[in-house]
């Protein structure tokens, strides 16, 4: 079987160093499917970034004036919050690996709280834009800004639904130190959302 799944999938099995276990016990991080999803999403966002860059090169004045009109504070706060949420969810994974279910659930709730805060700030940012007279059809910069950030917001919402699901599953004792693939997969997806924002923030708000 391994040869048909070669090579990316067979690589998902991590060979623990022999001195630790004395055998070649294999271990995976997350489900293979979630890595496919993550890479598909990253590719999708990469395409958006390239579109943005090309549009920027062709409309230099518009795009160099653009970032100055955006609410940088909101963008920065959201970056800080997403990084913090990544930290929370990483703590949740490390807690479940130690078998601390209660702690893991606590960290998951904090991650969700960060997600809600992110959405709140995004809402404020959109409201702020509207008050300043900017919307999707203002110009090409704003169209792309809304397309990128709204798309990202939808991913955050999707990630939050997934996290809520694994939180409930954790609550009903579905995960243990030995088996927590679902929780880990959801956490990886959440990290991917953070990864994309790490690039969106300088691209849209600073450069």
């Amino acid at each position: 079987m391994s040869n048909i799944l070669s090579p990316p999938i067979s690589d998902l099995r991590v060979h623990k160093p022999e001195q630790q276990t004395g055998s070649t016990e294999t271990k995976t991080i997350g489900s293979t499917a979630v890595w496919i999803l993550i890479y598909a999403e990253l590719t999708e966002f990469a395409l958006f970034f390239i579109v943005f860059l090309i549009a920027k090169a062709h409309n230099p004045e518009l795009f160099s004036a653009g970032p100055g009109t955006l609410n940088t504070t909101a963008g920065m706060l959201n970056t800080l919050i997403l990084i913090t949420s990544s930290f929370f969810v990483a703590k949740a994974v490390s807690a479940i690996k130690l078998g601390q279910r209660e702690a893991s659930i606590k960290w998951l709730w904090l991650t969700l709280l960060a997600g809600v805060t992110y959405c709140g700030i995004k809402g404020w940012e959109y409201y702020w834009n509207e008050a300043a007279g900017f919307d999707v059809s203002t110009n090409l910069f704003y169209s792309l800004y809304y397309y990128l950030t709204f798309n990202h917001l939808l991913h955050v919402l999707m990630g939050m639904c997934t996290l809520l699901w694994v939180t409930l599953r954790a609550y009903f004792n579905a995960y243990s130190a030995a088996d927590h693939e679902g929780l880990e997969s959801a956490a990886l997806y959440w990290h991917m959302i953070d990864m994309v924002w790490i690039i969106i923030f300088p691209l849209l708000y600073i450069l």
Binding site: M1, L5, S31, T32, A33, V34, I36, L37
Partner: peptide
């Protein structure tokens, strides 16, 4: 996406 999860999980 559930189908992807499903297929890989079953295999």
């Amino acid at each position: 996406f559930m189908m992807v999860l499903f297929a890989f999980k079953m295999v």
